[in-house]
Write a protein that binds this DNA or RNA. Sequence first.
DNA 1: CCTACCGATCGGTAGG
DNA 2: CCTACCGATCGGTAGG
Lengths: 165, 165
Amino acid sequence: MRDLANQVGMEAASLYNHIRSKQQILNDICFSLANTYTEKMNKVYPGDLSPIDKIKSLVSLHIQVHAMSSPIAAVMNDEWRYLTEPNKTEFVAMRDVYDQRFIDIIQKGIDEGDIKKLNPRIAYFTLLSSIRWLQHWFHANSEFDVDDIKRTITEMILTGIVVIK
Amino acid sequence: MRDLANQVGMEAASLYNHIRSKQQILNDICFSLANTYTEKMNKVYPGDLSPIDKIKSLVSLHIQVHAMSSPIAAVMNDEWRYLTEPNKTEFVAMRDVYDQRFIDIIQKGIDEGDIKKLNPRIAYFTLLSSIRWLQHWFHANSEFDVDDIKRTITEMILTGIVVIK
DNA sequence: CCTACCGATCGGTAGG
DNA sequence: CCTACCGATCGGTAGG
């Protein structure tokens, strides 16, 4: 809190005229992002897109979030476990629903013959995880271009790195 | 340190008959793993394998490390930034060499026409990152089987999730 | 928004 | 390996 206060040019004690507690900041960060993801899933999941296109659309949001606000994404990804109850339980419940729907989409793709017969949970974690490095490496002055990243990551998830001959 | 002492059944102060400092533990963890990775790279990099087979071999080690000692992998991945000097500089230097050689292998695969024309740095980070979820999800009583994970992740990295028709 | 301060906790040492 | 303890730091409050 001293570091934070210093960044905005005041004493730590003065921060408490603007926020309730350190926990409240964590809470706000985690749920604002969780809501963004959940809203997107609520739109995409029941829609008419093919499973592959649904995955493309969700992956695109994940990359966008990491690129536009990577510190926020990093805090949610790494610090959600320090949420206090009952917020932690609520957060985990939201995440579980999101995970399950994403896995359902993968399973549907498998059933329709468009996605390989992989373990859908392993495929899901591998897919999502492949985006996470952005939270450490992507920042405003990054050497990387968002569209280049979006193209490359999406291509790798869909068809890998190997040239098929 | 109190938690750690409690786990091994002694007082925090007694720990210091066995270790020099908390920093020393972090140091030992980071460099023991960094050495494992560096030794493997020193063997694989100059070898006769094709770039694709070199990548397979390195990916296999990464998965093995995460599966066999995921807390160690998690500590190195997430806490190396709290290393003190001169250790931090040395660690980063080792990692930079490792990264560069891995990227060289990808570049060679591109030059030889076996790997798609992707940005090799983006491809490298995406590839490595896709393994990281194991540090949070894989543990002794995990629902997942190591060989199943190795097969699925390797396949996804190489040829993605889509069925080519 | 600041000064002054609190109780808890941290990594670690002295001395046995 | 323990008791006793230290100085630093943490999130946060009282009172203005």
